[in-house]
Amino acid sequence: MAIKITDECINCGACEPECPNTAIYEGGVEWKIADGTTVKGDFTLMDGSVTTATAPHDPVAVDTYYITPDKCTECQGFHEEPQCAAVCPVDCCIPDEMYRETVEELLGKQAKLHNK
């Protein structure tokens, strides 16, 4: 399951550089699949739609940092635990119940994002 940032976020930014998938963005900033990944060309999002890697997508949140579930792998394949949650001083990085994924699915996503 992806991680989400709750509205208790204090916008400290500690989480953003820790994400190995560049799935964390400052509020109001558009996101792209290509940011911090090796993806080129078309990419299928979790909802089944296809986008190009460099296409900008609307921010998930405007007022606080956010995590795009299409790039979040809970740090599977990189770390033992989600790094955003490990460094968050207010514990606002929590599992996102809307996106339930197995470890195998998260590792598959990680492989797609980083051509492994």
Rank of each mutant, 00 (worst) to 15 (best):
G108I: 08
P56H: 03
L107P: 00
I94H: 03
A86C: 06
N115F: 12
D70W: 10
P95A: 08
M98I: 13
C19Y: 03
I3V: 11
C19V: 00
N115E: 15
E8T: 12
T6Y: 06
E26K: 15
K4N: 09
H79V: 01
A61L: 08
P95C: 12
V87E: 03
Y66T: 05
I10W: 01
A34P: 00
E26P: 01
D96T: 01
Y65S: 01
D42T: 09
G48A: 05
P95Y: 07
G41Q: 07
C72I: 02
L107R: 12
I94A: 04
E80N: 05
C92I: 03
T44R: 15
P82N: 13
D70L: 07
C72A: 07
T68K: 02
Y99R: 04
G108D: 12
E74I: 01
I5Q: 00
T51V: 14
G108T: 12
C12R: 05
L45D: 12
V103G: 07
G77T: 02
G27I: 00
M46L: 15
Y99C: 08
S49A: 14
C84N: 02
E101F: 15
T37G: 08
K40T: 15
A23C: 15
T38A: 14
D58L: 09
V29Y: 04
V62M: 02
T44G: 12
P20L: 06
A14V: 07
V62K: 01
H114K: 11
P89Y: 00
T44A: 03
A53E: 09
V29F: 03
C72F: 09
H57D: 00
T102G: 05
S49H: 08
D58M: 11
A85E: 15
E101I: 14
V103W: 11
C72E: 10
H114M: 07
L107E: 13
Y65C: 10
C88T: 06
A86E: 04
H79D: 07
Y65D: 04
G28W: 13
E18S: 11
G13C: 05
A53I: 12
T64L: 00
F43Q: 14
T64V: 08
P95M: 10
E8I: 07
I94P: 02
Y65V: 01
T6H: 09
T52S: 09
A2K: 00
E26Y: 03
A111L: 12
E80H: 04
Y65K: 08
C88G: 01
P20R: 03
V60L: 10
Y99Q: 11
T54S: 13
D58Y: 02
D7E: 06
A85R: 04
F78T: 12
L45R: 10
N21I: 10
T52W: 07
V103I: 10
M1T: 14
Y25W: 11
M98S: 15
V29D: 10
S49R: 15
T6G: 07
Y66S: 12
H114L: 05
P17W: 02
E18Q: 15
G77A: 04
D58G: 13
S49C: 06
C12Y: 08
D70H: 06
Q110S: 14
D96M: 03
C19A: 05
I3S: 09
G77L: 05
P59T: 01
T44N: 14
L45I: 08
D70G: 08
V50Y: 10
G36K: 10
T102W: 09
T44D: 02
M1Q: 14
